[in-house]
Computed example of a mutant assay.
Amino acid sequence: MTTARPTLIDAADGLAPVRTGEAESWWFGARVHDQEKVFWVKIHTMVMDGACLSTVALRREPDGHTEDKHTVEALDAVTVAADSLDVRTSALTVRGDLDGLEVSGTTDGASVRLALRREDPVLYSGGAGVFPFFGGRTGQYALPGLVTSGTVTVGGTAYRVGGRTWFDRQWVAGATEAPRFTWLGLDLGAGRYLSVWDAAGDGTSWLTALRADGSHLITDARRTERDGHWLLTVPGLDASLAITRRGLFSTPGVHTGVCDVTGTLAGEEITGHGFTDVIGA
């Protein structure tokens, strides 16, 4: 089905913490580059169970080197604004509004500082931005193609970079089961984005496709293993996408990867990139 407004959430107001939320998440995945190097970046902060969890992760290519920093801090040791997006922890800072954001973070050997500018419409997962979630419900939307500029500093060398960032905003309420899912956020170029959910664990998936005009298509998909990577088939989009994935950050029960995408979409050959989170597997 194709959806238009209204949605069940307000994306601008939803940047600030949701008072009914039991878990609050602000998730940024960036692919940026200078003339020679590509950097994949994850900056993620989550408020949950009276604590603030922060992750900063960096992957360099072509050498494939990764490094990360993960912290768990009491809420009274960090700053989380009540009425806007302004989160500051020992590892990272995220702040801004729907049209412009600033994110920064550090690991032991690197630092990242990025400015993000929105040019594309908001992607509302499920079309409405709210859907059932492991016995409860979740609100989720994305700013999936943020134009990105800034600096990545590694080993004392600063690289001026540009590229694109996927920002994913999510909160959870009333869940009665431990989450277990595979999620994909794919940037296919030309204003085309897919947010893909597999909560069954067997490749059975559903997705929200955002088009450049802001319209949404919610449809089924199938994700299968192929030589350690994935093939995503989406009949409703006449799409077959080969997803080559590599690791970015892992802790027990959480794995974040980065993806290169090739294939066909509506009869057109495409290339793209994306990110994946595998939770509970």
Rank of each mutant, 00 (worst) to 15 (best):
residue 126 G to K: 10
residue 237 L to I: 06
residue 114 L to E: 01
residue 249 F to E: 01
residue 278 V to A: 02
residue 220 D to R: 15
residue 93 T to E: 09
residue 107 T to Q: 01
residue 144 P to C: 06
residue 14 G to W: 12
residue 117 R to E: 15
residue 57 A to K: 06
residue 215 S to N: 10
residue 274 G to N: 06
residue 198 D to F: 08
residue 138 T to E: 11
residue 156 G to T: 09
residue 130 V to S: 10
residue 174 G to K: 12
residue 27 W to M: 06
residue 144 P to Q: 07
residue 52 C to D: 01
residue 202 D to V: 11
residue 166 W to Q: 08
residue 186 L to V: 10
residue 14 G to M: 06
residue 73 E to S: 11
residue 261 V to H: 02
residue 244 T to E: 15
residue 242 A to E: 15
residue 225 E to P: 04
residue 99 D to S: 10
residue 82 A to C: 05
residue 25 S to I: 15
residue 149 S to V: 14
residue 212 A to S: 13
residue 136 G to W: 14
residue 73 E to V: 10
residue 160 R to Y: 03
residue 280 G to R: 08
residue 118 R to A: 07
residue 228 G to W: 09
residue 22 E to V: 09
residue 241 L to R: 10
residue 252 P to Q: 10
residue 147 V to K: 15
residue 95 R to L: 09
residue 132 P to G: 04
residue 266 A to S: 12
residue 211 R to C: 05
residue 35 Q to G: 02
residue 220 D to I: 08
residue 221 A to V: 08
residue 256 T to I: 14
residue 67 E to T: 11
residue 115 A to F: 09
residue 261 V to A: 02
residue 193 Y to D: 02
residue 230 W to I: 06
residue 243 I to V: 15
residue 131 F to E: 14
residue 22 E to Y: 10
residue 4 A to N: 11
residue 99 D to Y: 10
residue 56 V to Y: 02
residue 53 L to S: 05
residue 108 D to L: 09
residue 163 G to S: 03
residue 17 P to Q: 08
residue 19 R to W: 13
residue 3 T to K: 14
residue 79 T to G: 00
residue 13 D to P: 03
residue 119 E to W: 09
residue 258 V to M: 01
residue 50 G to M: 06
residue 126 G to N: 10
residue 87 V to F: 07
residue 248 L to M: 01
residue 39 F to E: 00
residue 104 S to M: 04
residue 261 V to G: 01
residue 158 A to D: 07
residue 225 E to I: 09
residue 29 G to S: 13
residue 80 V to N: 02
residue 172 V to D: 07
residue 69 K to C: 14
residue 55 T to F: 06
residue 122 V to N: 04
residue 263 G to Y: 04
residue 234 V to R: 04
residue 237 L to V: 08
residue 278 V to K: 08
residue 198 D to G: 03
residue 114 L to W: 03
residue 73 E to C: 06
residue 63 D to P: 02
residue 238 D to A: 10
residue 161 V to I: 08
residue 28 F to G: 01
residue 245 R to W: 12
residue 175 A to Y: 12
residue 17 P to M: 05
residue 269 E to M: 08
residue 58 L to W: 05
residue 150 G to C: 00
residue 222 R to H: 08
residue 204 T to Y: 04
residue 153 T to W: 07
residue 4 A to P: 06
residue 114 L to Y: 05
residue 234 V to A: 03
residue 100 G to M: 12
residue 243 I to Q: 05
residue 165 T to H: 04
residue 28 F to R: 04
residue 94 V to C: 00
residue 187 D to T: 12
residue 226 R to K: 09
residue 84 S to C: 09
residue 237 L to H: 05
residue 179 P to H: 07
residue 34 D to W: 00
residue 72 V to C: 08
residue 216 H to S: 01
residue 31 R to A: 07
residue 9 I to W: 13
residue 81 A to I: 09
residue 45 T to V: 15
residue 85 L to P: 03
residue 144 P to D: 07
residue 60 R to V: 01
residue 13 D to I: 12
residue 122 V to D: 02
residue 177 E to Y: 12
residue 256 T to K: 06
residue 266 A to M: 07
residue 171 W to N: 04
residue 163 G to P: 00
residue 151 T to I: 13
residue 215 S to H: 12
residue 193 Y to N: 04
residue 61 E to L: 02
residue 28 F to P: 02
residue 60 R to W: 00
